[in-house]
Computed example of a mutant assay.
Amino acid sequence: MRTQRRQAEQREVHYHEARILLLIARFTTPKSGLAGLTKLAKLDFLLRYPAMLERLLAAGEASWPEGTAPTPSERLAVESRMTRYKYGPWDQRYYSILGSLTARGLITYGNSARAEFRATPQGAAAATSLAATPEWAVVDSRIRLLKQNFNKSGSALKNLIYDRLPDAVDRPWRTEI
């Protein structure tokens, strides 16, 4: 029983790492990366809660590229819960996920006023391989939609979520969304 639980936990960790790697890789350009933990957390929130993302898209449901709209079950649930924290949705696993991706040479990040996360060449190759699989193709398409419509600063994303998705943030700190 303990071994099965440990294996399930490891699969979950790998799942979160893969999603974050895809997100960082798609926002990495030759000149810049994904700027800041706030931006990472807000984009990840919209990725994990596609029904919330749909509410922010200008044309709503019509904005989704073919095959990427939330399924009926996704409209009622989320892929993994986040917690309401100081500046909105947050997942306490970000630090360990980012550390693991860095330790394996898949991302780098600078520690200036705000961290900028970049996929390394090895990380970009891994993300490209992941995106080519049926399991990750929809996630990758949704990330591309995020980049096209929400490539804003972390503060601007936070304000957008606070203004347009009050039900996601009007709750006590450390409660699940």
Rank of each mutant, 00 (worst) to 15 (best):
K158H: 04
Q92Y: 01
Y162R: 05
A124H: 09
E79H: 12
S141N: 14
R164M: 12
A131S: 14
S141Q: 15
Y49R: 04
L46T: 01
A59Q: 12
A127C: 09
A132F: 05
P89L: 05
N111T: 11
L43G: 00
D167Y: 11
P65G: 04
Y49E: 06
K86R: 13
Y95A: 13
L57N: 01
R174A: 15
V138D: 10
W90D: 02
P121C: 12
A156I: 05
V169I: 09
E54I: 09
Y162H: 07
A156P: 05
D44K: 05
P70E: 05
M82G: 03
P65F: 02
E116D: 12
L157W: 00
P89G: 03
P172C: 04
L43Q: 04
T102R: 15
T128A: 15
R84E: 05
A113G: 11
R55S: 13
P50D: 06
R142I: 08
W64M: 01
R174N: 15
N151A: 14
L101E: 06
G154S: 07
P50V: 04
L43T: 07
L130Y: 03
E61A: 10
F45K: 01
G88P: 00
A51V: 12
A51F: 13
P172H: 08
W64P: 00
A119F: 01
A51N: 11
A137E: 11
A115M: 06
V169Y: 02
S155G: 13
W90Q: 01
V138R: 13
S112R: 13
V169Q: 02
R142K: 13
R171C: 07
R114M: 14
G105W: 10
Y85R: 07
L165H: 03
E66M: 05
A113N: 11
E54F: 04
N159R: 15
R55I: 10
A58M: 07
Q122R: 14
A62K: 10
L53S: 02
P72Y: 07
Q148A: 06
G67C: 03
S129P: 00
N111A: 14
S141W: 06
P166W: 12
R55Q: 14
K152C: 09
G67H: 08
T128V: 10
A131P: 00
S96I: 09
T133S: 11
D170L: 11
L76R: 15
T128F: 08
A119P: 01
Y109Q: 10
P65S: 02
N159M: 14
G154K: 04
I107S: 06
V139G: 02
R174E: 14
N159G: 09
R104D: 11
A137C: 08
P50W: 05
R144N: 08
A125L: 15
A126Y: 00
T83F: 07
M52F: 06
M52N: 04
V138M: 10
G60L: 07
F150E: 03
D167L: 13
P172Q: 09
I161V: 10
P89Y: 04
Y87V: 02
L47M: 08
W173H: 12
